[in-house]
Design a protein around this nucleic acid. Structure first.
Lengths: 210, 210
DNA sequence: TATTTTACTTTACACCGTTAAGTAAATTAT
DNA sequence: ATAATTTACTTAACGGTGTAAAGTAAAATA
């Protein structure tokens, strides 16, 4: 069955090649400016060949968005060594923002663009990548609560709120809405704002005076 | 000059009509699915006529995004009567989220979509609408600081952080990333999270214990 | 050797934003 | 009153898009 194996392998290789050049292109010129025909040209196959490997354009970008999550998990993985869950929570926030700033197109695809979500909704599947990444945050928040942090707060809402705080920073940055900020503060704006968010978290878990 | 006036008026009317049906269409079927040709068909003019009134598609959506800001300001205006700046700040956050949830397509256009920003960058103009809306927030935050709230924090970074916190909630909601949340919490998620953000603000301005 | 399957291409459809050239009516100038 | 020009629009066209249907040559199987 070695011939069939080779064929299988070659199919897999072409599929990978499609994703590889799709990634190249969408990092080069942004995801919205990457067309099936561009990809086809670069892999030196006809455009319709791509449809033998992916259902549609959204399906390609769904696959790339999965790659993005693998990359994001690499940013997170080292943080599993941080013992204190609250310190880990803060580190996750910082890592998330670093990921967004260092991989803008991926970030856009994963958390802003509609394309990969269309691929899911098409055959109404669950957003597993999102669930898993959120799960990591959720777990850390739960640990925090178990250790007495954030007394009386709903862990899931708190997790979502943590996420949305850093997402807000990244989304405004990635989609070019930060021009309202003065030049002095524009430098490292995301990190400055992230520091403030983290200070808020710091104050959240302290018992309220009075 | 009454004939020239009438002509002027009629031109203005067609311009308004274009924006009117563009708005209809983009609220009906979303902004990305609204084409120049769709608009042309509905106003019963040829597609190219639209280019006599707007430079390009982005220019149309820039104009609509301006309308969105007028609408947002209506949500904000009543809040100018709130005496206490800190209460006003919290009310602004709530109003912002209400606006986003009640006018999703507008929100998308104003704070997520690239289209209106392209129109600005084309003739490198400033984002006046954004500046003005942010200015209102910034002013309120400054008042807060003047009254002793948020001691020692940078007002601009704090304003941006307030904005990004609520934007994060709205952007995740509008772009369909909330499916990671359990059904129980999915109901009114944005408002629940907003309440938590506001609680964070409440705790921010208290002097740190110890 | 004949048949079927595989992997791909060609062609085509129905859209898209946008530009260039053409046109009929209204206005202005002579 | 007639000719020239401007106005407001349309038709035609260019070069792009995603995607489906039909065709094809080679390989695998019968």
């Amino acid at each position: 069955m070695t011939i069939a194996n080779r064929k299988e392998r070659q199919k897999e290789e072409l599929r990978s090649k499609i994703l590889e050049v799709a990634k190249e292109l969408f990092i080069e010129r942004g995801f919205e400016e990457t067309s099936i025909r561009n990809i086809a040209e670069r892999i030196e196959y006809s455009p319709t060949t791509i449809y033998l490997y992916f259902k549609d354009k959204d399906d390609i970008f769904y696959a790339l968005h999965q790659e993005g999550f693998i990359l994001l998990n690499q940013y997170f993985r080292v943080l599993q060594n941080v013992e204190d869950p609250f310190e880990r929570l803060k580190a996750i926030n910082r890592a998330y923002i670093d990921f967004a700033l260092e991989n803008r197109e991926f970030y856009d695809l994963m958390f802003i663009s509609r394309s990969p979500m269309n691929a899911l909704n098409r055959d109404d599947e669950k957003w597993e990548e999102g669930n898993k990444a959120f799960g990591a945050l959720f777990g850390t928040v739960n640990e925090c609560i178990q250790k007495g942090y954030f007394k009386g707060m709903d862990p899931e809402i708190l997790s979502f709120t943590c996420w949305s705080m850093v997402h807000g920073i990244c989304a405004l940055e990635v989609r070019g809405r930060c021009s309202v900020i003065s030049e002095a503060n524009l430098e490292n704006l995301s990190h400055k704002s992230a520091a403030m968010v983290i200070e808020m978290l710091d104050r959240m878990h302290l018992d309220r005076p009075q």
